[in-house]
């Protein structure tokens, strides 16, 4: 392989097969011929579109955390909770491990992900590497599977059905905001952020 530079190569992370990089067509996904894993995908979304999407996600995220998720009613009494209500309740009920898990996977990690993306793309829009680009890109990679908003939406649905046998249950704006957030996250999940490494080469300036 003496002729090609390493940048022109692509290695499948799932089986170690080496490929020569080729330009992808719009929306095309390159898969590994040996193991079938995804190698690289072309994303048509512009940086501006992604920034707009992140801003939307942040607004929705604030809504999702501000508004109650579900309200219970029983003989005239009402009780509702927000995400932080859940986190605090678990902490006080001697389930601190669960409280930390919920806070991390539903609040801190998603928040960090959005802030990191926003920061990196804001500078990326101008073709520049954001301050702290390298450690922040590594942090973004490490956050990987630890955001679980979509699981929470399903969990809220199950909780509503369970509580429904004893109470009047109303779904509140918070859960709709969460559902919207899940949709936005799904769009993001299709974007390969590693491309930023190639799109924004290091500059000595």
């Amino acid at each position: 392989m003496g002729t090609s530079s390493p940048e022109a190569l692509l290695i499948c992370e799932h089986c170690d097969t080496v490929y020569r990089r080729r330009p992808l067509a719009r929306g095309e996904v390159a898969t590994c011929a040996r193991c079938g894993a995804e190698l690289e995908r072309h994303h048509a979304m512009s940086t501006n579109a992604m920034l707009a999407l992140i801003l939307t996600s942040m607004i929705v995220f604030v809504q999702a955390n501000m508004w109650p998720i579900v309200t219970l009613g029983l003989s005239g009494q009402h009780s509702s909770t927000t995400l932080w209500g859940v986190i605090i309740a678990m902490w006080q009920e001697q389930a601190k491990v669960v409280s930390v898990l919920v806070a991390a996977t539903l609040f801190f990690f998603p928040l960090m992900k959005m802030l990191l993306l926003g920061w990196l793309l804001w500078f990326g829009k101008a073709g520049r590497r954001a301050p702290g680009f390298v450690p922040l890109m590594v942090a973004l990679h490490r956050l990987g599977p630890w955001t679980m908003s979509e699981v929470f939406v399903l969990g809220a649905l199950v909780a509503i059905v369970k509580a429904h046998t004893y109470f009047d249950v109303t779904a509140d704006p918070g859960i709709y905001a969460y559902a919207a957030l899940t949709l936005l996250i799904t769009i993001f999940a299709g974007v390969d952020l590693r491309q930023l490494w190639d799109d924004l080469p290091e500059r000595t300036a």
């Binding site: 579900v70 009780s79 209500g85 859940v86 009920e93 969990g155 809220a156 199950v158 909780a159 369970k162």
Partner: peptide, 16 residues
């Protein structure tokens, strides 16, 4: 993680 979230939500809702 589904069941963990279900328990957490129900706890927070019904406790008061």
């Amino acid at each position: 993680m589904l069941d963990v979230f279900v328990v957490a939500l129900l706890t927070a809702l019904v406790r008061f």
